[in-house]
Computed example of a mutant assay.
Amino acid sequence: MKVDKVASSPIPVSQLNQPAYPQTEQPQRPTSVRPQTTIEQAITATAADQLAQLPDIDAEKVTAVKNALARGELELDIHALSSAVMRFHTGHE
């Protein structure tokens, strides 16, 4: 099969050199852009501040549990506790 060079084209040459998509002008951004705080960010910041003010340990609860253990009102399952600690720190027993 022989392919001959086509002498004429149905598309004018001036259109062949044009980019497929015309360039659009990019809108100019203001020089100083101030981020807007959303409601979620404000609520999260407030909650984080309140959480930071709380103590890491609830001393009253710790004392109540210690007293309940001393009185024999609570039983401490050492095996369950150690298994939970192992799962937490290693991902398995």
Rank of each mutant, 00 (worst) to 15 (best):
A64F: 02
S8M: 14
A45L: 11
L74S: 01
P55S: 00
P27C: 04
T24S: 06
Y21A: 14
A59W: 04
Y21F: 11
Q26T: 13
A59F: 08
P30K: 15
M1Y: 12
Q28K: 12
E25D: 15
L16F: 15
M86I: 13
E73C: 04
V62F: 06
M1C: 10
E73I: 04
V3L: 13
I78G: 01
E75P: 02
K66T: 13
Q23R: 05
D58R: 01
S32E: 12
Q50E: 15
T44D: 07
Q15K: 11
A7V: 14
P27G: 01
D4V: 10
H79S: 12
D77I: 06
R34E: 09
P10C: 03
L16W: 03
M1R: 10
I39Q: 13
Q23N: 05
D77S: 07
E40Q: 10
S9P: 05
A7D: 11
E93Y: 09
T44K: 03
K2C: 14
S82R: 10
L74V: 06
R71M: 08
H89Q: 13
L16E: 14
Q28E: 11
E40V: 07
K2Y: 11
H92Y: 13
T31G: 02
Q26G: 05
N67G: 04
P12Y: 01
L81E: 07
V62R: 04
T38Q: 05
A48H: 00
Q23L: 10
E73Q: 09
T31V: 14
E73K: 00
R29G: 04
L54P: 00
A7W: 12
E93W: 08
T46H: 02
P12V: 03
Q18C: 05
Q28Y: 07
L74W: 01
A84I: 06
Q53N: 09
S32D: 15
V62D: 08
T31H: 05
E93K: 05
H79R: 12
V33A: 11
N17I: 15
H79G: 10
Q15A: 15
A64T: 09
A80E: 11
R71E: 08
N17W: 09
D56N: 06
M1E: 15
S14M: 13
A48I: 03
A80W: 03
L51P: 03
V13I: 04
E40G: 02
V62M: 12
P19M: 08
M1G: 12
E40Y: 03
P10E: 02
G72P: 00
Q50N: 11
I43P: 00
S82Y: 14
I78L: 07
R29F: 07
L51D: 08
D49V: 07
T37S: 15
K5S: 06
P12Q: 03
Q28R: 06
I39T: 09
D77R: 03
A47P: 00
E25A: 11
K5H: 12
N17S: 15
A42R: 13
D77C: 07
V85Q: 11
L76V: 09
S83T: 10
S9C: 10
A42P: 02
T37A: 15
V62S: 10
I11L: 08
